[in-house]
Amino acid sequence: MPRNEYQTKLEDLRGDVLYMSEVVAERLRMGLDALAQKDAQLAEEVITGDGEINEMYLELEKDCINLIALQQPVAGDLRFIAASFKIITDLERIADLATNLGQYAKNAQRDVFPDVDIQRLGDVTLEMLDRAMTAYSGDRPQMCYEVAEKDDELDELCEIASEIVVRDLIEGERSNNDEDIPILMKDVSRLLLTIRDLERVGDHAVNIAARTLYMIENNDELIY
């Protein structure tokens, strides 16, 4: 096959993007664990590790630009590089959101709303990310649609979780001690931000699936 070196570079890019996704998924898992276990040290690891992800992102961005500039890709190759270029941005954003989880974990001292199952939300986002990257890895268009469908489920779970918090604030029996209110407000704010960030992780997973579907089939149905 002609252009062997070019083909090798394309395969290298695919491998590197998949590796980045594995590291990002690991950071997300660590952020969730830090939240569950109130583990400040683990939380700190997620936060400090973000620099590594950023470097990875910049390196891959450079690889994509070089491939476009030097190899003039077209057709399936062009779609693959264009999709990868977008996907690494989503991965980097997911890593930023994992860092947020680390920050929340550092500040969280207690579970104010035990009925809100953050870990379940996290598991759904990790599953979505895994499916999106499996689709990217193995050219599996059907999985892209599954990720989009799963996002509807995640959105619903996030909405329910937010409702639990709001309903509890309105209807729950809380201390009327003025000194407790600022702490409670911080806890509520942190929890709602956590829910929002996990919902955003799901959105990025859908973006990855959408770009992957474009890459495989030139189908922009999921891009919005």
């Binding site: 002609p2 252009r3 070019y6 890709p73 077209v74 057709a75 399936g76 062009l78 779609r79 030139n218």
Partner: peptide
Amino acid sequence: FENPQSQRVEDYITGK
């Protein structure tokens, strides 16, 4: 150049 319908065309323009 973005989405040729023929695999032979895809292989030609991508240099395969």
